[in-house]
């Protein structure tokens, strides 16, 4: 398990421009729908720096999930190129882990077994695996729930499990597709804080998709705003707010208002 990009610390100003961990070069992609061509992504050009928390913000249907699927390696780029660690992405792999929008836990495995799933076949002993699983259970605050089945826990807890089962693989890149939309606002805020604390600790690179402006301002170093039909990058905004951010603060509100305006403008 090599983690070539572990050296950069999260959230710190990037004094030196590092080489990008993810590079999207003129990405275009279309779907065939009933024989006609539906362009979904057009000329996407982005670079993500190691350790960066980047939010992709855009209206529903603008291609955010599609973009994430390309980064994950589930979809091939139609045109252009997508590089991870400087190499072209050839398929899904544990260096780029996804937290899905919908419930994607294995329903026949307990919480602990779900978290340990990716460790199988890595040459770890049963005890080593158990210890790691316990550590990550604890990290996401689910230590007492290891023996529960996914059907027996709440939506927020499920997303904690989803997070833990990928963090345990120590991915350099975390891809998150509106992971908290289905949660109530209280739980969503807790999850955002959890994500931020884990990010601070592991300093992995995060690409976080959302359509919620406040969520983007809470989390992001940079916000990529997308437009739809076809999906393209409208603007990239740096969020300069100090961490930890105060969602009640004036600056926070102003930042949200600015992004709202940008979203609305044509």
């Amino acid at each position: 398990m090599t983690k070539p990009f572990k050296v950069f610390s999260a959230g710190k100003p990037r004094a030196v421009q590092q080489s990008s961990i993810l590079e999207i070069k003129d990405l275009g992609l279309h779907f065939q729908v009933n024989g006609s061509v539906l362009p979904v992504l057009e000329k996407i050009r982005l670079a993500v720096q190691p350790g960066e928390m980047m939010c992709v913000l855009g209206p529903s249907g603008c291609g955010k999930t599609t973009l994430l699927n390309v980064l994950a390696g589930f979809l091939k780029p139609g045109t252009g190129q997508v590089l991870a660690h400087g190499r072209s992405i050839s398929g899904p792999g544990p260096d780029r882990c996804v937290v899905f929008q919908e419930d994607a836990l294995f329903p026949w495995l307990t919480v602990a077994e779900n978290i340990g799933f990716g460790l199988k076949g890595k040459g770890l002993s049963r005890r080593q695996r158990r210890e790691m699983v316990d550590r990550y259970l604890d990290m996401v605050g689910l230590l007492p729930f290891g023996g529960y089945l996914p059907s027996e826990i709440s939506g927020g807890m499920k997303q904690r499990v989803s997070l833990a089962r990928v963090l345990i693989l120590e991915p350099a890149i975390l891809l998150m597709d509106e992971p908290f939309v289905a949660l109530d606002s209280q739980t969503r805020q807790e999850m955002q804080q959890l994500l931020l604390s884990l990010w601070k600790r592991f300093s992995h690179t995060v690409v976080f998709v959302t359509h919620d402006v406040r969520e983007a301002v809470t989390l992001a170093d940079r916000v990529v705003m997308m437009d739809k039909n076809p999906g393209r990058v409208k603007k990239v905004v740096e969020i300069e707010l100090q961490r930890p951010r105060d969602p009640g603060g004036n600056l926070f509100h102003r930042q949200c208002a600015q992004l709202d305006d940008l979203l609305q403008s044509r």
Binding site: A72, G73, F74, G91, P92, G93, P94, R96, C97, V98, F100, A104, L105, F106, F117, G118, G121, R165, V166, L169
Partner: peptide
């Protein structure tokens, strides 16, 4: 299946 693929 995607979840499995991403976990290697």
């Amino acid at each position: 299946l995607r979840a499995g693929a991403m976990m290697g």
